[in-house]
Each structure stands twice: as C-alpha cells, then as structure tokens.
Design a binder for these strands. Structure first.
Lengths: 209, 209
DNA sequence: TCCTAACCTGACCATTCGGTCCGTTTAAGG
DNA sequence: CCTTAAACGGACCGAATGGTCAGGTTAGGA
C-alpha cells in the first residue's frame, strides 16, 4: 500500500528536534538548580530559543516541567527495581531511600514535586503512583523479613523520603550531606528493637507523596 | 517642665489604633490559613481597610508578617520556658518539640518561617535565634540527664522540629494529626539504646532554623 | 464650632509571569 | 532553485502583586 495519510506521529523538522533537545536540557539544568519557579523566559534564553518556541513544543509550562521531572523519576524507578533484584530484606529499601533522598539534594524541582508541589500533568501523577507502589513493595518485603517494625507502611516511607530531606534542606547550601545524619537518626527509630506503639493510623492516599 | 517636643512615640489616633488592631487580627487569621503568600489586598479587605492603610502602618508587607509571626513565636517561647521550669530531663524537650510541631499544624505562615522561608525582618531573625537558644538549652539538659543520645545537638533538634512536620504536611488536610506518628518514630531513634554512629557533623549556623 | 495634622482610600504604577499571535525565517521535497 | 508548510521569535496581552500618592475624611485639641 502507498503511505496512508495518518503518517508518522513524530516527524519533527530537524531544527525543531534540535531546539526541543536544547530546551529539555536547559530546563533540566535550571529546574534542578532553581526549582519549579524558574521562568519560562529564563529557560528559553538558556536554550538559545524564543519564548514562543517553548509553547510550540509544550502546551503549558507544567508540561515541560513534567517532561523533565518524569525523566528523573523514571531513572530513579529503574535504579529502584534493580536494587529490588540485587539486594535482600531491608537492604534494598534502605539503599533506595538513600538514592531518592540524594536525588532531592541534587535536583530542586524533583525535590519540590516529591514534597507535594502541584504539577498539573497526568504523567507526573502516574510516575508518582509508580514510585509509591515500588516503595510499598520494598517496604512490605523488609517488614516480612522482620528487618523493619511491622507498624510502618509504604505510605509512611514515601512521606519520610521527602521529610528526611526537608529536615536537612535549610542547611543544604552549606552542608549538602547533612541529610545522611537524619537518615540514620530516623532509621534507628525503625528498628524493631524498641518499637513504641505508633499513634495515629498510617498515612493514606497515593495522589501525591 | 513643660512637655518637650520629643513627645510620646506611640501616640496613635484612635481610629489608627483600631485599624492597626484589626489589621493584625485579620493578618493573623489569613496568614495562619493561607501562609506567607496571602496578598496584602486580601488582608486589607478582611480587616475592612484600604490597601494604603496597610502601608501606613507597615513599611513593607514583611513587616506586617513579622509582627504576626513574632507574636506567635514569642508565645511559643514563653510556653517553652515554663516547660523548662516545670519538667525534668527529656520531658521538657519532648513536650516543647510537640508544642512547636502542633503550632506548625495550626499556622501555615509560622510553619513556612520555621521551614526557612525568608522574611526580610530583623525581629524575626532575632526571635528565631531565641528559639534556637531555648532548644539548645533543653537539648543539653536532656543529654546531660542521659535521656538522649549524646551525639545529637540543639541544632539537630531545631531542624527536626520543622522536618517532622514537613514529613506529614502533604497529608495535613486529611490527616492533621499524622505528625504525631512521625514524632514517635523519630523519637525512638533518639534513644541511647542503639545509637548507630551518626555520619556528618551536626548542623551548624543559627541564621535560620 | 473650627482648624489642622493625622489618617484613610482606592486608583494608579512598575514588575513579573504564563501564554498568544502574527510576521518572518527556514528545512527539505520536487 | 522554488515552493510551502513547518517552525521560529519576540512584541504583546491579561492577571496578579507589592508598593505609591493625591485628594478626601476625621479625630480631637483649642
């Protein structure tokens, strides 16, 4: 058959593709450094592109942000699934949590999204859901292995991943590794050795972290 | 002597004083509910006052915010000093930390300031300094009593007061008491029973939390 | 009652931001 | 080349916000 009208969906002109790549790269750098509130104008300028071009490639700013943040999140998820295979018991969970917190330290936009900043985009919501599922699985495994107090849930860990970093965040500029301190401090509290009964039921809801 | 020209510094006209009170009250409510980003226009409207009146009483928005936040902070400090008198060992510290976190749950502006939001006002910086000093004293007492692992400092606790609430914050709307869960979880990790060595030196700096 | 300084008000200003639009440029097939 | 649809760019728009100011209002002493 001759080629039907439907055509290839991603037939971008060469300059368009190049600009899009530059855009994503620039956005990645600026968002990591300055967080979700960097202006579209800044990103466009850094990409060496007009502001109008941004909106030719993305219907709204949040869609560009989503592209960047989702890429980061998916890379993290891939790492997490590898850890899930290669490590046992609580080790996979602990390593993954550390990975996720480290990432927040390196990427302010990711950090904000993880902390609940609203990005109006379906892909982001879905990626976060996947994240929560992975955390839940890792947590359940660790609990079943008896390495983690049984009254802690995946939802708790999801929140703590963000919270531990937030704890150290005010000092991030001068002590970028401070989060490790609170990571250990918190982890000690998870051990089944003592386990005071936890008040209030576990966190619920998977809509955001 | 007849009254000298220097005059009383706070001789506000009756309407001015009344408006100022209304302003502080309205700001208190709105800031607690909506955080630091509520607009001056909103506050003025709620106080039943023109926007210009706000800037007659405060040179900048941050000065109004400072007035409100400082009042909250100073009330908390007073409570803390009472606890310091009435309770022993780690009890005073634990109760004060709980008080401070509860306050964040009830007042979003306070919460943001505690988490490091910049309010360009000297009084706020000073109040935060006082706060840090109190926390340090309470912590030192608890450590000396042997109730708290000795490698934890007041600066750590200051950060954790904010961090514990931040952990639960994404769920605050539906589970306002969730922070208690992470409070206990974290407190368990402070007990000297296990005490894995903490990596990275303690938090430093008292400029913000 | 009258006068005036203190006070109040809301229209106005400057800035910033996301997003639109249209005249211009350019890739790339024929 | 030449044509044309795709892509570009930046002036422009509307909304929001902190802050200003000229002109009207009022408290309160004389």
């Amino acid at each position: 058959m001759s080629e039907i009208a439907v055509g290839p969906p991603d037939a971008l002109r060469s300059d368009a593709r190049r600009n899009r790549e530059r855009l994503v790269e620039a956005a990645g750098e600026l968002l990591a450094l300055g967080g979700i509130d960097v202006s579209v104008a800044e990103i466009a300028a850094r990409a060496g592109v007009g502001k109008g071009t941004v909106f030719r490639h993305y219907a709204a700013k949040d869609d560009l942000v989503a592209d960047v943040v989702c890429a980061v999140l998916e890379r993290l998820l891939a790492q997490g699934r590898e850890l899930q295979m290669s490590l046992t018991g609580t080790d996979a969970l602990r390593e993954f949590v550390a990975e996720a917190i480290q990432l927040q330290a390196n990427d302010r936009a990711f950090c904000e999204v993880v902390a609940g900043a609203s990005v109006d985009n379906v892909r982001v919501s879905r990626a976060i859901e996947d994240f929560n599922v992975l955390v839940r699985d890792l947590t359940n495994t660790a609990v079943k292995a008896g390495d983690i107090r049984p009254d802690v849930t995946g939802a708790d860990i999801s929140l703590l991943i963000s919270g531990i970093y937030q704890t150290a965040a005010p000092r991030a500029a001068t002590q970028p590794e401070l989060w490790r301190r609170y990571f250990v401090l918190f982890w000690d509290g998870l051990l089944p050795v003592h386990a005071s009964p936890l008040p209030v039921p576990p966190a619920v809801g998977v809509d955001q972290f």
